[in-house]
Design a protein around this nucleic acid. Structure first.
Lengths: 111, 111
DNA sequence: TCGGATAGTACGGTTGACGTTATATGACGT
DNA sequence: ACGTCATATAACGTCAACCGTACTATCCGA
């Protein structure tokens, strides 16, 4: 799972949002680092809906504009939790390896 | 940065390794989850070398077979550290959002 | 009136991972 | 002798996902 997808699921975890709301939420969650483009957002949303990780909660027409609200499914929440654990394991593994950097020089022992 | 790339950098963080050694290391680091295919591995290695995140340490000929050892550069170590911090922030953000799930029902207050 | 925020659709391009095949040698089993 | 597995790298083609941009449309503020 890539970052944009992960952040979209994260945004929907707390409450259902419509497309533009997701963009705002992700912007906040990523501390301004990730501003979703329409192509990324709606492409991911279609994909995630097909996979059953999100679903359309309702459609609203506000001032002639359509608002489609998406909700995280239980399956989506489970997938997100799994991904969180994976990220944590990866981060820990990398840190351990980095701590070995410039580590034990072979042949010099403790003399 | 995607998972295979991240794991390759992680594998090289502790010590230089050649291609096949990276495959074994990543297999261990990912608890058997990620088995790198040649296409993924050498493609990533070429890309990372171009970006200056890894470099060829030395080439060895063992029994007629070439062994090319790759080393993580300082720039590569920095990139990996940055990515570790990012993963940790993403994991924390997602967990916070998940904790709000089935959260406060609007309109019911504390009555 | 022009720009920016809101809201979604459509389309083409690029990147990076994926899968498979090819090449080559040594070890091991049958 | 032959097949298979492990080691080791190269070289394809394919696909998923993200990216950028343009388009449509409405409302608001400068």
């Amino acid at each position: 799972m890539q970052e944009p997808t992960f952040l979209i699921l994260t945004a929907l975890a707390a409450a259902p949002l419509h497309g533009y709301g997701i963009v705002q939420s992700v912007l906040g969650l990523s501390e301004g680092e990730v501003k979703l483009r329409p192509g990324t957002l709606y492409g991911a949303l279609d994909r995630l809906a097909e996979q059953g990780l999100v679903e359309v909660e309702r459609e609203e027409a506000v001032e002639g504009r359509l608002r489609r609200y998406y909700r995280l499914t239980d399956q989506g929440a489970a997938a997100l939790s799994t991904e969180v654990r994976r990220l944590r394991r990866r981060a820990t593994a990398a840190e351990t390896q980095l701590n070995d950097r410039h580590g034990i020089v072979p042949g010099l022992g403790t003399a």
